[in-house]
Simulated scan of single mutants.
Amino acid sequence: MDLRDFRHCLGSFATGVTVVTCSTGEGKHGLTANSFTSVSMEPPLILVSVDRKTKACSYLQDNAFAVNILRGGQEALAMHFAGRPNEELELKWQDGEYAPYLADSLAVIECVPWQAYDGGDHVLYLGEVKQYRFEQGEALGFYTGQFFTVPMLARV
Rank of each mutant, 00 (worst) to 15 (best):
M1N: 11
D2V: 03
D2A: 08
R7E: 02
C9F: 14
F13N: 02
A14W: 11
A14H: 08
A14I: 09
T15V: 07
T18W: 08
V19C: 09
V19D: 06
V19Q: 08
H29W: 15
H29T: 04
H29L: 09
H29M: 06
G30F: 13
G30L: 10
L31P: 00
L31N: 02
L31S: 10
T32N: 09
A33I: 13
S35G: 02
F36R: 02
T37P: 00
S38I: 12
V39F: 10
V39N: 07
S40C: 15
S40Q: 12
M41D: 08
M41L: 15
M41N: 10
M41S: 14
P43N: 13
P44Y: 13
L45C: 12
L47K: 06
V48I: 15
R52M: 02
K55W: 08
K55I: 00
C57S: 13
L60C: 09
D62V: 01
F65N: 07
F65C: 08
A66H: 06
A66G: 02
V67M: 10
V67D: 04
I69A: 04
G73H: 04
G73Y: 01
E75I: 01
A76S: 13
L77K: 01
L77S: 00
M79H: 02
H80T: 06
H80I: 05
H80F: 12
A82F: 12
G83T: 03
N86L: 11
N86E: 13
Q94M: 13
G96H: 03
Y98M: 01
A99M: 07
Y101K: 03
L102E: 04
L102G: 04
A103M: 01
D104R: 06
S105I: 05
E110H: 04
C111W: 09
V112Q: 12
D118A: 13
D118I: 05
G119E: 11
G119Q: 11
G120A: 09
V123A: 12
L124S: 08
Y125K: 10
L126W: 11
L126C: 12
G127F: 11
E128S: 15
V129P: 12
V129I: 15
F134E: 07
E135L: 06
E135T: 07
Q136M: 03
E138S: 05
F147M: 06
F148P: 02
F148L: 13
F148C: 05
F148A: 02
T149F: 00
A154Q: 14
R155W: 04
R155M: 07
V156Y: 09
